[in-house]
Nucleic acid binder design. Structure first.
Lengths: 231, 231
DNA sequence: CGGTTCATGTCGCAC
DNA sequence: GTGCGACGTGAACCG
């Protein structure tokens, strides 16, 4: 399941075999990449790590960063020998987005059978929603939740309810410090609700987040929306 | 620079050595992960690929998807032997966000010296901006660009100019099909400009994108903003 | 399949 | 460092 300093033919065969067995392949070597499609990008030759997953995802990682320096998702993957070098071709058949990885040399290759199992995340927006539902006063004293993901012409409101005075309230939840887009999002929902409900209905909007930036605070104020810090 | 089926002590030493030499390490093995911090997540034991980069980024990849199933950026990385097993500890010293990767077994380890070189992307918003500047009619017949990234109280406008009638125009550029957030963003800029400029100044907003969704079209219309298809 | 939104988003840039 | 917006964003969810 491993090769060291293979020649191009061996490497190509190794990759092809592994892929036909639904294995993942980890490659280390000197390679250049080109991507063409909706955007374009080329990388000069360099030592990189290439991971080919059984779902045809190909990741090219450089020395730093969480994100790959090049990648391909979706389309087919083929391993060929071109000009006496291993070359990976990734992309949809008709070739809208295409990634090519051209190896000058392969230091190392390993094949393995990865598991797909995953775990659940907690601390997400859903958790915050559940907390708000079980303790509506977090939003505001006297707030009552009536629905979640209530549909409006502008999209679904995270939490929909009424305040102590009976006014309709749209609640937008953010698990982190909220920025201007959150204020705009809430404003879209509130505007849509005002249009949707009877003209005499009062509609308020409350942004629930651990924190907001100053500009966001100003935006909320200008739109007559409220902020309720949580967590 | 390679190990096959190492015992935990060898694996830990291998990782530690590689890291002290500023090398990246590619690991394949059966491992479980836990992440704790702003959110929480745990993965059961499974065969995965772990990539430790010299910048202390750690990526845990499963069988599918472009994104890692677990990762750590920033903090320190240490490789220890715990309960006769390799364990990677990643996180800031005081431990806000912590990732732990516990190996049941290591099938394979490889160390290498990755290059950091990267290439530039074309087809991005900057390219679209340059195209618009060199050919303002793309925005609208008679449009004249006066500035890019012009500052407003709501943030910088992509392109700022005037239309054939001399009215101020804020242009928001999107390289892909634009959604509701783009309309809201443009509206924020236009509102800020109307407030900022003389009261009698007419201010228009034009969203420039290859395409927009229907809801976005409606939002633009409600706000009196325009859409100009490009590309 | 398209539309919308969340994300441990990540990343880069300006203040 | 914080704030802000783009990203070849990716990924899930829903009609």
């Amino acid at each position: 399941m491993t090769l060291a300093d293979p020649d191009p033919e061996s490497a190509a065969a190794f990759v092809a075999d592994a892929r036909s067995d639904d294995l993942a392949v980890s490659l280390v070597g000197v390679c250049a990449t080109t991507f063409e499609g909706c955007a374009e990008r080329a990388l000069p030759a360099g030592v990189r790590h290439v991971l080919c997953k059984p779902d045809d995802t190909v990741l090219v990682h450089g020395a730093s960063g969480r994100d790959p320096v090049a990648w391909s998702s979706g389309g087919d993957v083929t391993a060929n020998v071109v000009d006496d070098a291993l070359e990976l071709h990734c992309g949809v058949g008709d070739g809208a987005d295409t990634l090519t990885v051209s190896f000058e040399s392969v230091q190392h290759a390993a094949a393995f059978a990865p598991t797909n199992e995953a775990g659940d995340v907690s601390g997400t927006e859903v958790d915050l929603k559940e907390r708000v539902l079980s303790n509506p006063d977090l939003v505001e004293d006297g707030f009552r939740a009536l629905a979640t993901e209530r549909e409006t012409p502008a999209g679904p409101v995270d939490v929909y309810g009424r305040d102590a005075d009976g006014a309709v309230v749209a609640v937008e939840l953010k698990t982190r410090r909220a920025g201007p887009s959150a204020a705009s999002q809430l404003e879209r929902y509130v505007t849509a609700l005002r249009r949707d409900l009877h003209a005499d209905a009062e509609v308020r909007g409350i942004l629930v987040a651990p924190e907001i930036t100053e500009k966001t605070r100003r935006l909320l104020a200008e739109s007559g929306l409220d902020f309720s810090p949580v967590e």
